[in-house]
Design a binder for these strands. Structure first.
Lengths: 133, 133
DNA sequence: CGGTATTCCTATCGGGATAGTAGGAATATA
DNA sequence: TATATTCCTACTATCCCGATAGGAATACCG
């Protein structure tokens, strides 16, 4: 349960690779090989990280990807949300008016608490923490 | 992200129903109607909760389901794990030997921390807390 | 004993998401 | 011009989730 999609795992591994690499930038193919990720699949993930402003890219020969910020300035929550969207255990966590008529919605606060627990953890870690673990 | 399957949401709603109901026991059909859950689907969920020892059942006319313990003795983690299995963000959280050769497994500790954050929250709440929220 | 209410078991099915593939266009370097 | 690389769009296969169907087993009640 609560299994994290490979998309997110791969994205984080790619960012870890960039954060620990000596080189100024790395190509998608390099990262894919080093991290044992399907190359074409990784391309899409890196594109997503770029759209979210977490990495920068340069095209053409000698192009590649690099981090947009220092690892200590990248909270893990930002990474996870960039790849999967906001943490939302159930649909109604941010919609108090969602419950079906007559249905007891007691569990809602419980789910909100879970969201806060997860968000709190993700907010407390940065990419730096992960590469230094 | 981290969306909880309806299976789990329904299961918790069903347990909340049992915990707050005046009657000694409730039928699957009653709960389904009161909680707006697909009746046949709920049957399976209740069966799962029974297998896990969270509810007791009686067959035949005037049969039904009731809680196996008092709500304060049912941790939410036990419910969630009964319905979805153990919390496991990534496959390798409890298998230190799982990572592909040559692949940097730095994120593993991060995922273990996430599991602990979630488990910690779920351990801190009982069914009683949920119905009194 | 027969009728009825209920849990319990097994099988099936459609839709959506996930994971991955394919091909090539745009762009930068040399 | 040749080559390396990002970038874009579309496609496919597979799996899981949510739900449905039908009926067997079982218990109460007259």
């Amino acid at each position: 349960m609560f299994s994290v999609p490979t998309r997110t795992q791969y994205g984080i591994r790619a960012l870890v690779h960039l954060a620990t690499s000596e080189a100024r930038s790395s190509t998608s193919a390099e990262i894919a090989k080093a991290q044992a990720i399907s190359p074409k699949y990784l391309e899409g993930i890196l594109g997503q990280l770029k759209t979210s402003g977490l990495v920068l890219s340069e095209r053409g020969a000698h192009g590649g990807y690099r981090l947009a910020r220092e690892p200590e300035s990248i909270p893990m929550r930002e990474i996870v949300e960039a790849l999967e969207g906001e943490i939302r255990p159930v649909g109604c966590v941010d919609d108090s008016d969602c419950c079906e008529q007559g249905v007891d919605c007691l569990p809602r606060r419980f789910w909100i608490g879970l969201k806060q627990a997860i968000d709190g953890y993700l907010d407390s870690k940065t990419l730096r923490d992960v590469i230094e673990a």
